[in-house]
Design a protein around this nucleic acid. Structure first.
Ligand SMILES: [Mn+2]
Ligand SMILES: [Mn+2]
Ligand SMILES: [Zn+2]
Ligand SMILES: [Zn+2]
Lengths: 134, 134
DNA sequence: GTTAAAATACAACAATGTTGCAAATATAAT
DNA sequence: ATTATATTTGCAACATTGTTGTATTTTAAC
C-alpha cells in the first residue's frame, strides 16, 4: 500500500518524518531497531519526533514491535491482510541479528494451565537466516 | 534446590546480594522485573551490583530473561530439569502484568521458510491469568 | 491566503545500561 | 586463627534510551 494512503486511512497528516519512516519500513522486508530506522531515513529528525512517530504508528497499528533478547526493540510495518496485531511469529537470526516477520506461519495454540485464558500468541524463533546459511 | 548449592554448582562465591536475589526468585513462582526484584530483597544493594549479579546469573543459566511488550525485561529462575535455555513458553497476564514460566508446555515447531534453520523457540502467550480470571 | 489544529525541534529530565576503580569481603592457604 | 589472593561491592561517572513541556513551524481545511 502507498505511504500516503496508509496515513490517510488513519487520519494522520502527511509529514516528512512519517512518510520517511513508513517508506523505510516498507522498503526493507525486515524489522528494524530505532537506530537502524534512523540510519535508513532520508533526512534527520529529532529523537523525540521519531519516538512520538513510532508511538503513534504503534497505537494505530501501522507498525508493530518485536521484543527480542538483549532488550532491543524491533519495529516492523504491519501488513493489514495478516492481522499482525494478533498471533504472529518472528524469526531472529543469531548470526546477523536480522528480525523477520513470518506472516505465513500459524501458531499452534497449546493447552494452558487450569484457569488461564489466552488472546494472543507470539512466537519468536531463533536460528540462522537464509542469507547467513548460504 | 538450595540457594547455596546453586551458587556452588556454578563456582560462584556466596555473597549477600546473590543469595538474596536467588532466594527472592525462588520464593515467588513468577518472573520479576529488576525493580520488582529490588523491592523483594531483604537488603539494599547498589544498582550496579544488582545489574552485574543478574548478568552473571543469566550467563550461567541460573536465571533466564523474558522479553515482553513494553520494553520490560522479566527475570525468572531456571529450573534445571526443564532446560529453560532451550525452547520455552511464558504467559503474560494483561490484567496484573504477571509473567509465568510455562514449563509443562511444549512448543510445536512450525515449518520455516526455505533456507532458515532454527535452534530455539520462544512462545509468549498473552491473556488473563488464573488469579485475574476468578 | 487565512486560520486552527497538529507536528516538529529543542531542551530538559527520568530511567536504564554500563564501566573503572578503590574499598570491602569471601575463600583458600598457611 | 591469620594471612594472602581473588572476587565482589559501592560509588561515581558516563552512555543510551524513554519521556514530556513548550515555542515555533508546518499541515490541512476553509
Ligand atoms: Mn511481525
Ligand atoms: Mn521461563
Ligand atoms: Zn542472518
Ligand atoms: Zn493476572
Amino acid at each position: 500500500m502507498k505511504t500516503e494512503s496508509i496515513l490517510d486511512q488513519h487520519n494522520l497528516s502527511k509529514t516528512p518524518c512519517r512518510v520517511d519512516i513508513i517508506n523505510t519500513l516498507t522498503s526493507v522486508d525486515v524489522a528494524l531497531t530505532e537506530n537502524q530506522i534512523k540510519k535508513n531515513l532520508k533526512f534527520d529528525y529529532d529523537r523525540a519526533t521519531i519516538f512520538r512517530t513510532l508511538k503513534t504508528f504503534s497505537e494505530k497499528g501501522i507498525i508493530h514491535c518485536v521484543p527480542v533478547e538483549g532488550n532491543e526493540v524491533y519495529y516492523a510495518i504491519s501488513k493489514p491482510n495478516y492481522k499482525q496485531t494478533l498471533s504472529h511469529a518472528h524469526f531472529h537470526c543469531n548470526s546477523c541479528g536480522g528480525v523477520y516477520c513470518l506472516n505465513s506461519i500459524s501458531i499452534a495454540e497449546p493447552q494452558l494451565p487450569e484457569g488461564f485464558s489466552a488472546n494472543k500468541y507470539e512466537l519468536t524463533i531463533n536460528g540462522c537466516c537464509k542469507k547467513c546459511n548460504e
